[in-house]
Amino acid sequence: MLLDIPSWTAVLLTLTTSTTILISRDWRALLGALALQYLAAFWLVTRHLPLAMGSVKLIAGWMSVAVLGMTRINLTPVEDRDQDRFYPRGSAFRLLLMGIVILVSAGSAPRIEAAIPGMGLPVIAAGLLLVGAGLAQLGVTNDLLRVTLALLSILAGFEILYAAVESAILVTGLLAAVNLGLGVVGSYLMTAGSVPLIAPEDEE
């Protein structure tokens, strides 16, 4: 049980960061929370995978955060508009959504633990929390940065769960590529449209 204290701390960190990502409007807080989320995911993944493979996930995740952060910092205020048009979109509604995610995760984690023994309750709880929070985020936003963060959260949750059943190096490598790729695609989409169309004759 003592061994589980760090894992449960990681679950708590996951809960805090995913709630921050769902509620906060400051992009710095969003990316900071995502970086911390990868730290929690790293700890939980290493319950089942060797440290080196867990580190790959952590580094790939942090690289995605860095790519998104560098892109976001360079966007001009005009591009900085909040694209969300969803109602209701207040913090209270998002907190309610997160509450539902917590309830569903708390309800299903013990049942999954019973169905797949050996996975570990903290691993399942954190995985479900991240997937649930990511899905909730996808449901209430159109903003490209938030959509990318939601997809990265879902993938992080999935990776925590999948690490318990699959330990192939190729899968770890490809999942890292997918994480990085999502970061790059998100950055590209955020940048697209801000570059003016220049005809070849204008370039000369």
Partner: peptide
């Protein structure tokens, strides 16, 4: 594992779908 490779390919396609000078729409998201 093909599912992973399909996902990587799907991400690369985004660069074909959205030219750098064009604001991405909802479809690509």
């Amino acid at each position: 594992y093909a599912a992973l490779l399909l996902e990587v390919a799907a991400m690369l396609i985004v660069f074909l779908l959205v030219p750098i000078y064009q604001t991405p729409g909802r479809g690509v998201v």
